[in-house]
Protein backbone atom coordinates (compact mmCIF):
# COMPACT_ATOMS: atom_id res chain seq x y z
CA UNK A 1 0.00 0.00 0.00
CA UNK A 2 1.33 3.44 -0.90
CA UNK A 3 0.48 6.67 0.81
CA UNK A 4 1.12 10.26 -0.14
CA UNK A 5 1.98 12.51 2.77
CA UNK A 6 1.98 16.24 2.51
CA UNK A 7 4.34 17.53 5.17
CA UNK A 8 4.70 21.18 6.03
CA UNK A 9 8.07 21.93 7.59
CA UNK A 10 10.05 24.91 8.75
CA UNK A 11 12.09 26.24 5.85
CA UNK A 12 15.33 25.82 7.77
CA UNK A 13 18.75 24.38 7.34
CA UNK A 14 18.91 20.65 8.07
CA UNK A 15 15.20 19.83 7.95
CA UNK A 16 15.48 17.52 4.97
CA UNK A 17 18.23 15.61 6.78
CA UNK A 18 16.08 15.25 9.88
CA UNK A 19 13.16 13.89 7.89
CA UNK A 20 15.24 11.58 5.72
CA UNK A 21 17.25 10.44 8.74
CA UNK A 22 14.10 9.54 10.65
CA UNK A 23 12.90 7.38 7.75
CA UNK A 24 16.16 5.50 7.42
CA UNK A 25 16.68 5.09 11.17
CA UNK A 26 13.24 3.61 11.68
CA UNK A 27 13.44 1.50 8.55
CA UNK A 28 10.58 3.04 6.56
CA UNK A 29 10.77 3.05 2.80
CA UNK A 30 10.41 6.25 0.83
CA UNK A 31 9.26 5.85 -2.77
CA UNK A 32 9.75 9.49 -3.55
CA UNK A 33 10.30 12.75 -1.76
CA UNK A 34 10.01 16.23 -3.16
CA UNK A 35 10.56 19.45 -1.34
CA UNK A 36 10.00 23.07 -2.23
CA UNK A 37 8.95 26.37 -0.84
CA UNK A 38 5.29 27.27 -0.24
CA UNK A 39 3.24 30.45 -0.44
CA UNK A 40 4.73 31.26 2.99
CA UNK A 41 8.51 31.58 2.53
CA UNK A 42 9.20 30.33 6.06
CA UNK A 43 7.51 27.03 5.26
CA UNK A 44 8.45 24.27 2.84
CA UNK A 45 6.25 21.46 1.68
CA UNK A 46 7.50 17.94 1.36
CA UNK A 47 5.48 15.45 -0.60
CA UNK A 48 6.53 12.02 0.51
CA UNK A 49 5.31 8.77 -0.97
CA UNK A 50 5.77 5.88 1.47
CA UNK A 51 5.12 2.19 1.22
CA UNK A 52 3.49 0.40 4.10
CA UNK A 53 0.27 -0.74 5.72
CA UNK A 54 -1.90 1.40 7.96
CA UNK A 55 0.20 0.64 11.05
CA UNK A 56 3.33 1.82 9.28
CA UNK A 57 1.53 4.93 8.07
CA UNK A 58 0.39 5.68 11.62
CA UNK A 59 3.92 5.34 13.00
CA UNK A 60 5.45 7.39 10.17
CA UNK A 61 2.94 10.16 10.77
CA UNK A 62 3.57 10.18 14.50
CA UNK A 63 7.31 10.08 14.13
CA UNK A 64 7.18 12.94 11.63
CA UNK A 65 5.03 14.94 14.02
CA UNK A 66 7.62 14.37 16.74
CA UNK A 67 10.20 16.30 14.78
CA UNK A 68 10.18 19.85 16.09
CA UNK A 69 10.57 21.34 12.61
CA UNK A 70 7.56 19.48 11.23
CA UNK A 71 4.50 21.69 11.40
CA UNK A 72 1.79 19.47 9.94
CA UNK A 73 1.44 16.06 8.35
CA UNK A 74 -1.53 15.22 6.13
CA UNK A 75 -2.29 11.89 4.54
CA UNK A 76 -3.58 12.77 1.08
CA UNK A 77 -6.22 10.36 -0.14
CA UNK A 78 -6.00 10.00 -3.90
CA UNK A 79 -9.75 10.67 -4.46
CA UNK A 80 -9.48 14.15 -3.07
CA UNK A 81 -6.08 15.07 -4.40
CA UNK A 82 -4.52 16.28 -7.60
CA UNK A 83 -1.13 14.75 -8.16
CA UNK A 84 1.48 15.49 -10.78
CA UNK A 85 4.93 14.39 -11.64
CA UNK A 86 7.26 15.73 -14.28
CA UNK A 87 9.62 13.59 -16.31
CA UNK A 88 12.22 14.23 -19.00
CA UNK A 89 13.08 11.49 -21.49
CA UNK A 90 16.07 11.57 -23.82
CA UNK A 91 15.08 9.17 -26.59
CA UNK A 92 17.24 7.93 -29.45
CA UNK A 93 15.84 9.32 -32.63
CA UNK A 94 16.78 10.26 -36.17
CA UNK A 95 14.92 11.66 -39.17
CA UNK A 96 13.28 8.31 -39.82
CA UNK A 97 11.38 7.99 -36.58
CA UNK A 98 11.19 11.54 -35.29
CA UNK A 99 7.59 12.05 -36.43
CA UNK A 100 6.50 8.80 -34.83
CA UNK A 101 7.95 9.97 -31.51
CA UNK A 102 6.29 13.34 -31.92
CA UNK A 103 2.95 11.62 -32.43
CA UNK A 104 3.30 9.70 -29.20
CA UNK A 105 4.27 12.90 -27.42
CA UNK A 106 1.19 14.60 -28.87
CA UNK A 107 -1.18 11.93 -27.61
CA UNK A 108 0.22 12.35 -24.11
CA UNK A 109 0.31 16.12 -24.38
CA UNK A 110 4.03 15.95 -23.88
CA UNK A 111 6.41 18.43 -25.42
CA UNK A 112 9.57 18.07 -27.40
CA UNK A 113 11.99 20.46 -25.79
CA UNK A 114 15.26 19.58 -27.50
CA UNK A 115 16.06 18.07 -30.86
CA UNK A 116 19.51 16.82 -31.85
CA UNK A 117 20.60 14.72 -34.88
CA UNK A 118 20.48 11.47 -32.86
CA UNK A 119 18.09 12.22 -29.97
CA UNK A 120 15.15 14.24 -28.71
CA UNK A 121 14.20 15.29 -25.21
CA UNK A 122 10.54 15.08 -24.27
CA UNK A 123 8.94 16.70 -21.28
CA UNK A 124 5.83 15.11 -19.82
CA UNK A 125 3.69 15.97 -16.84
CA UNK A 126 0.98 13.86 -15.36
CA UNK A 127 0.19 11.31 -12.78
CA UNK A 128 2.39 8.34 -12.29
CA UNK A 129 0.48 5.93 -14.56
CA UNK A 130 0.67 8.34 -17.47
CA UNK A 131 4.40 8.70 -17.11
CA UNK A 132 4.83 4.95 -16.79
CA UNK A 133 2.78 4.50 -19.96
CA UNK A 134 4.76 6.91 -22.09
CA UNK A 135 7.97 5.40 -20.82
CA UNK A 136 6.79 2.00 -22.10
CA UNK A 137 6.14 3.50 -25.52
CA UNK A 138 9.54 5.17 -25.73
CA UNK A 139 11.46 2.07 -24.67
CA UNK A 140 11.55 0.45 -28.13
CA UNK A 141 13.25 3.57 -29.53
CA UNK A 142 15.90 3.45 -26.83
CA UNK A 143 15.76 5.68 -23.78
CA UNK A 144 19.24 7.14 -23.35
CA UNK A 145 18.42 8.93 -20.11
CA UNK A 146 15.41 9.79 -18.06
CA UNK A 147 14.65 11.76 -14.92
CA UNK A 148 11.48 11.95 -12.81
CA UNK A 149 10.80 14.56 -10.16
CA UNK A 150 8.71 12.44 -7.87
CA UNK A 151 5.16 13.31 -7.04
CA UNK A 152 3.80 16.64 -5.92
CA UNK A 153 0.23 16.86 -4.70
CA UNK A 154 -2.40 19.26 -3.42
CA UNK A 155 -5.80 18.65 -1.98
CA UNK A 156 -8.68 19.58 -4.30
CA UNK A 157 -10.98 22.49 -3.53
CA UNK A 158 -10.55 25.56 -1.38
CA UNK A 159 -9.46 23.74 1.75
CA UNK A 160 -5.72 23.27 2.01
CA UNK A 161 -3.59 21.22 4.34
CA UNK A 162 -2.15 24.30 5.97
CA UNK A 163 -5.48 25.91 6.86
Amino acid sequence: MRHTLSVLVENKHGVLTRVAGMFSRRGYNIDSLTVGITEDPTISRMTIVVKGDDDVLEQVTKQLNKLIDVIRVTDLKSEETVERELALFKVSSDVNNRSEIMQIADIFRARIIDVAPRSVIIEVTGDETKIDAIEQLFRPFGIKEMVRTGKVALRRGAKGVSS
Binding site: H13, G14, T17, R18, G21, M22, R25, I68
Partner: peptide, 16 residues
Protein backbone atom coordinates in the same frame (compact mmCIF):
# COMPACT_ATOMS: atom_id res chain seq x y z
CA UNK B 1 28.01 17.11 16.03
CA UNK B 2 24.51 18.22 15.03
CA UNK B 3 24.63 15.60 12.28
CA UNK B 4 26.00 12.95 14.62
CA UNK B 5 23.44 13.59 17.34
CA UNK B 6 20.38 14.05 15.15
CA UNK B 7 18.99 10.59 15.90
CA UNK B 8 19.81 10.77 19.64
CA UNK B 9 18.50 14.21 20.53
CA UNK B 10 14.97 15.47 20.85
CA UNK B 11 16.19 18.41 18.82
CA UNK B 12 19.46 20.16 18.09
CA UNK B 13 20.72 23.50 16.87
CA UNK B 14 23.75 24.86 15.08
CA UNK B 15 23.73 28.55 15.97
CA UNK B 16 24.35 30.57 12.82
Amino acid sequence: ITGITMPITKHNYLVQ
